[in-house]
């Protein structure tokens, strides 16, 4: 039985259609990668799944999942600048009623042990991203909705993130990841959804991508129409 089912989900803001009749489902222990150009509707789709945005039509069905079992990362969501890293994490986890067994250990694991008492507002963007990642890996979470999860992370951080995702995916947890990093998605995800102008234009498994196109980047370039006027970049 799928963990989530998206049935004919559409979203309009005024007269502008952001998502149109999106359908897909995700099983336990699977990861789906969402690709598409800027403004394609990837973030809105993730926000619709977690309930921040209400769909105009269609429905999002969470099978046997309660909202507090969903973990999310969005680019436009930050912690509180006036609190230190560790205080922010305590306040955040207490608010959503989640526990990390040893916060100190997690700060060490995510390479933030030296700066845990530093105010969040002086963190670099990479450190902020590490905080985001630390906050979602609480034990109770079952479904992870990640929007550009590795933007700003250094190479070590990206490698650690990939390993961590693969290991907890093997524990039966599910992921929906929107990213432009095709190599990273290729390593983590089992299937891919390509979105353009709010509509799904291709849905393919990892095996299909590798068999037909050799790499995810080639698949993306073949399927998704370019939104950049290449001629303007030619000299």
């Amino acid at each position: 039985m799928p963990v989530i089912q998206i049935k004919n989900v559409s979203k309009r803001f005024g007269t502008k259609s952001i998502l149109s009749a999106i359908n897909f489902s995700l099983n336990r222990g699977e990861a789906v990668g969402i690709l598409g150009p800027n403004g394609a509707g990837k973030t809105t789709l993730l926000k619709t799944i977690c309930g921040l945005v209400k769909p105009t039509d269609g429905e999002v069905i969470l099978n046997g999942l309660s909202p507090d079992e969903i973990a999310t990362i969005f680019e436009d969501q930050r912690f509180l600048g006036h609190l230190s890293g560790i205080k922010n994490m305590r306040v955040f986890l207490n608010s959503i009623d989640q526990r990390l067994i040893s916060l100190e250990k997690h700060f060490e694991q995510f390479g933030l042990a030296q700066s845990k008492h530093v105010k969040y507002k002086v963190y670099s963007s990479g450190m902020k991203k590490r905080m985001d990642l630390m906050s979602i890996f609480a034990p109770k979470k079952q479904l992870f909705l990640l929007d550009e999860p590795t933007n700003g992370l250094d190479i070590d951080g990206m490698i650690a993130f990939n390993q961590h995702v693969i290991s907890i995916k093997n524990e039966g947890k599910s992921f929906v990841i929107a990213s432009h990093h095709t190599l990273e998605l290729e390593k983590i995800c089992d299937s891919f959804l390509m979105i353009h102008s709010g509509a799904v234009i291709a849905e393919m498994s990892k095996a299909e991508v590798l068999q037909e196109f050799n790499s995810l980047e080639t698949a993306y370039r073949s399927v998704v129409p370019t939104s950049i006027n290449q001629k303007l970049f030619q000299r």
């Binding site: 309930g51 921040l52 507090d68 079992e69 969903i70 969005f74 930050r78 608010s95 959503i96 979602i136």
Partner: peptide, 13 residues
């Protein structure tokens, strides 16, 4: 700064 949305999208009703 998106903190409220972070709480709500991470399970706080």
């Amino acid at each position: 700064n998106g903190y409220a949305l972070k709480l709500i999208s991470n399970g706080l009703s």
